[in-house]
Write a protein that binds this DNA or RNA. Structure first.
Lengths: 200, 200
DNA sequence: CGTATCGAATACGTTCGCGTATCCAACCGG
DNA sequence: CCGGTTGGATACGCGAACGTATTCGATACG
């Protein structure tokens, strides 16, 4: 918790600058100096706010991924419940494929897999994302007259499909067919993990 | 193409050492010196074989991913065609989840997304993997009395599911349920992208 | 308005890693 | 076995980035 407003602003500008630098250079190839230059501060300011680049990286990832989670929750909350088909589509669109953020997450994943502490942090975050998304899909499917058989399994499947197809979309950004197949795969998964209700 | 045997051996030992170092430190945080020390050479030897760490990284990735592709092809070739269920399972197992390699691939992906040239290289490799795996699944499904409707879509879906679920498996290595859900998701996808043949 | 404190800037010395220019040994062909 | 060539080792200078100890200005508060 930052003590003063001044401190908080500096800290935030450093985080924002780091986001850009990491996206451009990769976390591994980034330096404290690059981050400071981008933010318009000197290294003195940096070390007054963080003890290392690693610490900043963790702080950055936590802040941004928490914000994304909030965005998703907000987007899902505003979905029209009367058109379940469209609702599902909207929900899928609510988890966008962001180039820069994807690169950072990929590196953070690799980083976390090397560090047991970080691994647990990341696993918990994945779980939170899953739990935030899941109810919306379950509800939408319910309105379509379908019951989800194994919620946990559906949640994991949706996250996996999102992650796995993101790479494909980013590798072929101009290929609309790839995006279409991504959509279709989501729909197929939703279908496979739910069954029609017998009573209307 | 290496000129002499001596040169080839040195090159190979450098690549092998780099694999270890990258897996431990991350590509971004690795140095030429670390690789050389691990391989038992000096930086002189390194620069006689590669012009930069980036070049080595590309060479390493191409070599290892080509080898993996061969392994998969070999494993798939030896599959028993008389038990299609088991064949599918075996095929899934033939694409193992390797911790160290996953980390390296994750970083390489991020790297490639920053570099148009590398991005194309990687997209081509993904395509090759898909095309190698696909026929086996199509054939196995055929023996189960099912026809694949859209091969391209199935291929992309399988790759996406593999990638997406790998993270989950690695994040919770001791949770057998995660692995089971991964298996089930594969089966569901195979089912969703094929339909029963009418004539026996 | 004055003062005390907090936080960013400055100014070191140091280490680390780089890439090259040169040297010397190992090996390959005759 | 012997010269020539190939390829790894040595040794250099250089620049980048680090982390800290200290200074100085801004801002919060009485």
């Amino acid at each position: 918790m930052p003590v003063t407003k001044r401190r908080a602003r500096t800290r935030q500008r450093l985080l924002d600058a780091a986001l850009d630098v990491f996206a451009e250079e990769g976390f591994g190839r980034s330096t404290v100096e690059q981050v400071c230059e981008r933010a318009g501060f000197t290294r003195g300011a940096f070390y007054s706010n963080f003890s290392s680049l690693d610490e900043l990286f963790l702080a950055l990832w936590e802040e941004r991924s928490a914000r994304m989670l909030d965005d998703v929750r907000a987007a899902l909350a505003g979905i029209d419940p009367d058109d379940p088909e469209a609702a599902v589509r909207a929900a899928i669109d609510a988890t966008p494929v962001d180039d820069a953020w994807f690169r950072i997450t990929a590196e953070f994943t690799a980083h976390a897999l090397r560090n047991p502490g970080l691994r647990r942090v990341m696993a918990a975050r994945e779980e939170a994302i899953r739990d935030a998304i899941l109810p919306v899909f379950v509800a939408a499917l319910g309105r379509l007259g379908r019951r989800v058989t194994d919620e946990r399994a559906l949640g994991d499947a949706l996250v996996a499909v999102h992650d796995g197809t993101s790479v494909q979309v980013l590798l072929q950004p101009d290929d609309v067919a790839v995006r279409a197949r991504r959509q279709a795969l989501f729909m197929n998964v939703l279908d496979a993990y739910s069954t029609p209700l017998e009573s209307a």
